[in-house]
């Protein structure tokens, strides 16, 4: 296999693995956050405004980890610098 094939295989494989592993951690973290928020809502319903707002802020923080992984996957698929270099070389030949 020549270089361009290696680059393509590595990019595609890494893109899939990145988003897969990224979403596992995020799912576990957000599930735990929401579970604790629900139990504290059940204990103190009159603080629901604060709890809900803090829950959303916390969820956004955890979500940003998954979004970082998603952006890396998108870059590897759509804006891959190594692949554009290979294409430019192939077009120049």
């Amino acid at each position: 296999m020549d270089n361009s094939t290696w680059i393509a295989v590595a990019s595609i494989f890494t893109a899939g693995i990145t988003i897969g592993i990224g979403s596992v951690g995020t799912g576990l973290g957000q599930g735990r956050a929401v579970a604790l928020a629900l139990s504290s809502l059940a204990q103190q319903p009159d603080a629901s405004g604060t709890i809900t707002r803090t829950l959303f802020v916390g969820l956004a923080m955890i979500e940003s980890l998954a979004i970082d992984c998603f952006c890396v996957s998108m870059i590897l698929i759509f804006a891959n610098p190594f692949w554009t270099h290979v294409i430019a070389q192939a077009a120049g030949k």
Binding site: A60, E63, I67, F70, M74
Partner: peptide, 16 residues
């Protein structure tokens, strides 16, 4: 950086 990435990632992924 996280503020920028979070908003960009969410909106870009939605349209994509």
């Amino acid at each position: 950086l996280a503020l920028a990435m979070r908003l960009f990632g969410n909106m870009m992924s939605g349209t994509l």
